[in-house]
């Protein structure tokens, strides 16, 4: 550290604003809200820490008629489940008011960057794939919202992988794999040995109980076909 004498005027802290862009998860509830919350509870039972510490936006586009009081109690319902809403999108921007998160507009579904057509000598494209050599242990969560995740080892029961794109597991998948959260319905999940607790792609999910038991122990891939999550053996 240098101990330079400072003149008085430079001691005043500068006020700075920085723009920051990051990925928020968006929740888009539908009527009837009770049923939607019940679905959410079923999800949270499998994935209790899923929303903790993450930026969540409430997309109310599908709830045009909701009044401020109901919206407030709905946000409180989410809060009680550990989901902190940072902003509300898709509603009447002025109508939210005090006691509710701010209204925003212009959120975009995030997509993986599409490579620009090569011109001259292109720089090597930046990899958006996260490769993990070690096993993912119970209680660990890998959150990689911008690309694919490749795990060379196993994913333990009670562990979780969340990827913007696809998920590949070369060991045993015993925990939860949540792919395509960057609005990528084309994302897939592959594993060498399937014993997962939960699979999800682009918001559609299946828990272990909903998956054909003959898939257990086999190499499988999961993808979305006609708005349904389909698990099929690879061998």
């Amino acid at each position: 550290m240098s101990a330079q004498p400072k003149d008085k005027s430079s001691q005043k802290p500068a006020l700075r604003f920085r723009g920051r862009s990051f990925l928020a998860l968006s929740l888009a509830p539908q009527q009837p809200l009770d049923a939607w919350l019940a679905d959410l509870d079923a999800w949270l039972e499998r994935s209790p820490g899923f929303f903790q510490g993450r930026a969540v936006i409430l997309d109310v586009a599908a709830l045009p008629a909701i009044d401020v009081a109901s919206l407030r109690s709905f946000v409180a319902d989410l809060d009680a489940r550990g989901i902190r809403i940072m902003a509300i999108e898709g509603g009447d921007a002025g109508g939210a008011g005090l006691g509710l998160p701010p209204a925003i507009a212009n959120g975009r579904d995030s997509q993986l960057p599409v490579a620009a057509p090569p011109r001259g000598k292109p720089a090597p494209p930046e990899s958006t794939t996260l490769v993990i050599e070690d096993p993912i242990r119970s209680g660990q969560s890998v959150f990689h919202p911008r690309g694919d995740v490749v795990v060379m080892g196993s994913v333990s029961s009670g562990a979780e992988i969340v990827a913007g794109g696809s998920i590949h597991v070369y060991g045993v998948l015993r925990g939860r794999a949540i792919a395509g959260i960057a609005a990528q319905p084309g994302a897939r999940i592959f594993c060498r040995k399937f014993e997962a607790e939960l699979l999800a792609i682009d918001g559609l999910y299946k828990s272990a109980d909903d998956i054909d038991p003959t898939a257990i122990g086999r190499s499988v891939s999961a993808r979305i076909i006609d708005d349904a999550l389909v698990v099929s053996p690879l061998d």
């Binding site: 993912i136 242990r137 119970s138 209680g139 660990q140 333990s156 029961s157 009670g158 562990a159």
Partner: peptide, 8 residues
């Protein structure tokens, strides 16, 4: 499972 957690 607890051991797995501890290893992490």
């Amino acid at each position: 499972r607890d051991s797995d957690r501890i290893i992490g």
